[in-house]
């Protein structure tokens, strides 16, 4: 981007201000997770822990088998993300680029599905899963998560496939490529930013979903992180230390994911690769 020095400075200042605003509440969460209980509710609060403790992390792993919740969440979220990306990229491409009929009704139907309140569908879905004997299994979460995250992923990928110039599609066909080859050799690499966005949103949605996980997988060995963390609370107490410790740990995989795939979204594309 062509810009002057002042513009660049303004850009940095704006960005840093936003980043600070975003990080502060989270800083408070991290700090609290290292404070003993009596300090957590003390006033005035200490902005840096006076007494550091790892007790909340120890409780999360020792008392609540948090390791098992992490394993389950990883399996469910990774599988969901994989299936969603696979199916949604194909479907998004078809809707964006191929002469299929009834595109608008399709897109509206997808919108309706993703807007339908989960609380309303959870009871019939439970009966369905119980009938086919899927309760307390990974697929009890992976399949519904895939289905409910597909609409958004299709929408977002369709949007990016539309931005790839149509000339590329025609050129590939003249070269004798099949539709599917055109799709995965030309379009998929060019829409990496969109794939990244779809992947992150799907992963996070599967990673944080609570109600289905609570109801469909009630056995302790099948619990996921959000349900596990909710079990930290007692009827009359909210153990901020343990809840925040668990949440800090639950952020780590997402950070790793972003670090691995960051190139897909920032400066991943050589300039001019996409021509209008």
């Amino acid at each position: 981007m062509i810009q002057t020095k002042t513009q660049r400075v303004i850009g940095y200042v704006v960005l840093i201000l936003f980043l600070v605003a975003i990080i502060l509440p989270f800083y408070w969460m991290v700090v609290t997770s290292f404070k003993p209980n009596t300090d957590i509710t003390a006033y005035p609060p200490s902005l840096v822990p006076k007494h550091w403790t790892l007790i909340h992390y120890a409780t999360a792993f020792g008392h609540f088998s948090f390791g098992m919740y992490i394993r389950n969440s990883v399996i469910v979220a990774v599988s969901t993300t994989f299936f969603v990306l696979l199916f949604a990229s194909m479907a998004g491409f078809a809707i964006a680029r191929l002469p299929i009929r009834a595109k608008t009704p399709m897109l509206i139907a997808l919108l309706i599905i993703s807007v339908f309140p989960p609380i309303a569908v959870i009871t019939p879905l439970y009966m369905l899963l119980r009938t086919i004997g899927w309760l307390n299994s990974y697929q009890a979460l992976i399949v519904p998560y895939t289905a409910f995250n597909l609409p958004f992923a299709i929408w977002i990928l369709r949007n990016y496939f539309l931005q790839v110039p149509g000339a590329l599609f025609e050129a590939a066909k003249i070269d004798g490529a099949t539709v599917f080859q055109t799709f995965y050799r030309i379009f998929v690499p060019l829409t990496k930013p969109g794939l990244f966005a779809a992947a992150v949103f799907t992963f996070v949605a599967a990673w944080t979903e609570f109600f289905m996980a609570l109801v469909f997988n009630s056995a302790n060995q099948m619990r996921t992180i959000p349900v596990g963390i909710a079990l930290f609370s007692g009827q009359f107490n909210v153990p901020y230390g343990e809840i925040f410790a668990g949440s800090v740990i639950s952020i780590v995989p997402i950070v790793i994911l972003v670090v691995i795939f960051r190139k897909w979204i920032v400066s991943g594309l050589t300039s001019g690769a996409v021509k209008g």
Partner: peptide, 27 residues
């Protein structure tokens, strides 16, 4: 726009941006 226009801090910004979104809503 800010992230898109800066040279540095892009990766850090991305990670920081995603923290709130990745938190469990109840938490």
């Amino acid at each position: 726009l800010a992230i898109n226009n800066v040279e540095r801090l892009k990766n850090v910004s991305l990670v920081i941006m995603l923290i709130p979104w990745s938190l469990i809503t109840v938490v």
